[in-house]
């Protein structure tokens, strides 16, 4: 039995594709290269196998994703996760929200912020810095984006420099991308 998850959680669900992922047995050499499949590494998630249908995008997406979320300098990793979470909450991507809330909690060694966000939504009682970061990510993620000078001024007043704001733009925007794959192409489920 599988049950589709509709509420935000840090307990990362299983992702079940709504269409048929690429079958490794039938994959082209270009797909195998992009999936980094080798005789000793044949483990590939269903999500990545689904994206392998568009191999040219997949090849660019993975290094770009890693650079935005993990490259050194600028905004801290946990604050980039907060940007990703803001986007994922706007787009109601349960799977992405779970993964990035869990990473935030792990990096911060605290579930306080994500507990509050999942319990109280946009009204959550956050520190001024987290509040400015979350509000910016939410405003940028709306469609159309409604981010204005007041959102950036709030980031500046909370002590963020230009490099941190740029990293927040990139991490929030990146989840505009990721959410439109995860939330559109599959369901977050619990298997029992």
């Amino acid at each position: 039995m599988t049950r589709v998850i509709t509420k935000f959680t840090r307990n990362v669900p299983h992702w079940q594709p709504r269409l048929k992922p690429v079958d490794l047995e039938e994959a082209s050499q270009e797909q195998l290269d992009a999936l980094k499949v080798t005789p000793s590494n044949t483990k590939v998630s269903e999500y990545v196998l689904t994206l392998a249908h568009d191999v040219e995008s997949l090849k660019v997406r993975s290094p770009l994703f890693n650079a935005i979320m993990y490259d050194e300098g600028g905004m801290s990793r946990s604050e980039r996760e907060l940007g990703a979470l803001g986007a994922s909450m706007v787009n109601h991507c349960i799977y992405c929200a779970a993964v990035h809330a869990a990473r935030h909690a792990q990096l911060e060694k605290s579930t306080d912020v994500t507990d509050k966000l999942f319990r109280d939504g946009a009204r959550a009682d956050l520190s001024p810095r987290d509040r400015a970061i979350f509000d910016f990510a939410v405003a940028l993620s709306e469609a159309p984006p409604r981010v204005g000078q007041e959102h950036v001024a709030a980031l500046r007043d909370a002590g963020l420099d230009e490099a941190e704001v740029l990293d927040l733009i990139l991490s929030s925007a990146l989840f505009g991308w990721a959410n439109r794959l995860m939330h559109v192409l599959g369901d977050p489920v619990r298997v029992s």
Binding site: P145, V165, I169, S172, A173
Partner: peptide
Amino acid sequence: AYQLRVIAGLRVL
């Protein structure tokens, strides 16, 4: 979705 949000964010930055 990503590209247009990078643009919107950079503009206000």
